[in-house]
């Protein structure tokens, strides 16, 4: 009985961590870009995952080069995340808003040009969602196979993983609406920080880093990015104000 509880419980908890990571990115992409592309990316990853599992079976854990996959996916997610975080910091500091007229004009012009046409599919959102779901799904498959081989019964850890999926999916669905009320730049900033964190973590694992406390290292990584962003916004806002004052005093001196 204890062994059964351990197999189900350990698989449930470990899978919960992986599903939370995947759902965080699916939610983030859905809220900030497009639900259609985010959910289709996740669905495509699920299909791909099913094909991979059906093809490799129990040999999956020894045949798929997970460190390489983590490195590639992590680097790509990191690039997306840093770009979003950087842009949100510039907007919070008031710098992006000051020099953004051309971009806004271009976006508006493009929106008008596309008016009446079928809306273009968001491939960026689709790709980010697909990559992250596929990576986390593979990790859940590895967890189930590892616990299954150790306990001698594959159905128990599979049951734990399925339970984790249901719990995380219901929680994700419940928090979707409140998250949609968050202001756009704040949401993009949070998404940027989350993607940068997961990207750093996965890219690091791909490069051979063994993070202390394994997946729990994600928490201090989030803290580092939040602290850095807070300091960057303060520093940039202060520098922008100082330069604006310096410019206006020089203009006054000339006049």
């Amino acid at each position: 009985m204890t062994a059964v509880a351990f197999a189900v419980g350990a698989s449930f908890l470990a899978s919960c961590v992986e599903f939370v990571e995947a759902f965080t990115i699916i939610l983030a992409v859905g809220i900030t870009r497009s639900w259609k592309s985010s959910l289709l990316g996740a669905a495509a990853a699920a299909v791909l995952l099913a094909v991979i599992i059906a093809g490799f079976g129990l040999t999956l854990a020894s045949t798929v080069p997970l460190p390489v996959l983590r490195g590639v996916v992590g680097t790509l997610v990191l690039v997306f995340g840093l770009k979003w975080m950087r842009k949100a910091i510039l907007r919070f500091a008031g710098i992006k808003g000051l020099h953004d007229e051309e971009e806004i004009f271009a976006e508006e012009t493009e929106a008008l040009r596309n008016y009446g046409r079928a809306q273009a599919f968001d491939w960026v959102g689709f790709t980010v969602s697909l990559k992250s779901t596929l990576l986390e799904g593979l990790e859940v498959a590895f967890i189930v196979i590892t616990f299954g081989l150790n306990s001698g019964d594959m159905s128990l850890p599979a049951l734990g993983a399925a339970g984790a999926f249901v719990v995380v999916a219901i929680t994700g669905f419940a928090v979707r609406k409140p998250l949609e009320q968050v202001p756009e730049n704040t949401m993009k900033f949070v998404v940027g920080v989350m993607l940068s964190t997961f990207g750093t973590f996965w890219a690091g694992e791909g490069l051979g880093i063994e993070w202390p406390a394994a997946d729990l290292s994600i928490v201090p990584l989030i803290a580092v990015y939040l602290l850095f962003s807070w300091l960057a916004v303060r520093r940039l806002a202060a520098a922008r104000t100082a330069r604006a004052q310096s410019q206006s005093s020089e203009v006054a001196a000339v006049a």
């Binding site: 950087r86 510039l90 710098i95 992006k96 960057a232 940039l236 330069r243």
Partner: peptide, 8 residues
Amino acid sequence: LLRQLPRR
């Protein structure tokens, strides 16, 4: 980020 500051 620093490269985005307005020039002196």
